[in-house]
Design a protein around this nucleic acid. Structure first.
Lengths: 216, 216
DNA sequence: GTCTATAGGCTGATAGAC
DNA sequence: GTCTATCAGCCTATAGAC
């Protein structure tokens, strides 16, 4: 009896699980290999289901990709809004923390956006581009608040933004690589964790923005 | 007569041109689209020749890719050696200039290495990995020379290196995108040039390393 | 919802003419 | 050295059984 009941519910439950598995598998593979190099079979295998289900649940590979990226971007935007920039004692440090959470908390986000940016044909979804611009606006607002000296005031906010986001993205990507090559190298590199990395980056930025050059 | 002579030399000359064209086309496409997403036909079309010539000159797509990447890495290493780190008044600024030249002077290098790093299956060629490590060694040597305060001495050299290389790579990639999307955006972003970017990055690093925090 | 089978298109390599 | 023609393999999407 009870086994019948269980079987009766199974299909419905399995549906949600399957959709989520496919999404997780797709995120992993699209990030590591890219859209073109990822086969629907690869996704299905990793998700532990049949390849036809990708089309059934997401209207094909393209639909799956779009949904994964849109979700990741939305989540990044949500995380960014959790930070409180205005009441922070050191807004530039809080800025780094916010961007760190937004970029690095989902391991597949940075690689996917990076791949989009590298390919001119694949022009960014307008919504995605807007989100990226809103991140840069955060940096600009911080620069407007801080008491900058003459030299620092001459820096292009866009450049300063890149000095924060560049390292964060790169750290995320490099971490993926390190995890994959653990034990494969004869001389394994030290693997700093995200918090240490974020704190160091925040300290460097803060000193660059606030401190006068030692011999200026 | 002269036309006969010209035609007689043409095949020989054309050979070199064709090889170079294919290489240039491959570099462009592998960088923007990645290995898998680039068809041999695409390369041949861009190079203005027949697809069979790719196999003839480079033993197939894989051989072409390997040669392009190896050449780019070798050239980056050569450029890095041109810089004089020991006699510079501000070694950390010279370091940024050196890395900037090595990374950004060949537009296809950064995207290609980035793609390799993102894919764990495609483990880096040992020679390439060695070159990347030698770049990090440059940063370490600079940190050993500078008079760092207590806080800066606690920073992981690997992290400091990422704060230099990350922005440089990201700037290179972003520049590609900007050039491709010129006019496609309603609100075009300012496009700082590489020299301005490099100088700003050098200034920020120098201040971060040398200046004491304003209120530490 | 899930699976099998298959169609239709694209891709990389190569044999052979020039 | 360069080109045309072609083949064998792979990939995505879908029709239809369960």
């Amino acid at each position: 009896m009870s086994s019948i009941k269980t079987q009766a519910r199974a299909p419905q439950q399995r549906t949600l699980d399957t959709r989520a598995s496919i999404k997780a598998a797709g995120a992993e593979l699209f990030a590591t290999r890219g859209y073109r190099a990822t086969g629907v079979r690869d996704i299905a295998d990793l998700a532990g289901c049949n390849q036809a289900l990708v089309s059934y649940h997401f209207k094909g590979k393209g639909g799956l990709y779009d949904e994964i990226l849109a979700d990741a971007v939305a989540e990044a935007e949500r995380l960014a809004k959790e930070g409180d920039l205005s009441s922070a004692a050191y807004p530039e440090r809080e800025l780094v923390r916010i961007l760190s959470r937004a970029i690095a908390s989902q391991a597949h986000l940075a690689p996917m956006i990076l791949r989009e940016q590298m390919d001119p044909d694949r022009l960014l979804n307008p919504g995605t581009a807007d989100t990226l611009r809103s991140f840069m606006a955060l940096t600009e607002s911080v620069l407007n608040v801080l008491p900058l000296d003459t030299e620092a005031r001459g820096w292009d906010p866009q450049i300063v933004h890149l000095t924060i986001v560049g390292p964060l993205i790169h750290f995320t990507v490099a971490t993926r690589m390190r995890e994959a090559t653990v034990g494969k190298l004869e001389r394994p590199m030290s693997t700093p964790d995200l918090d240490t990395f974020t704190d160091t980056l925040a300290a460097m930025l803060s000193r660059a923005l606030r401190a006068k050059a030692a011999d200026a």
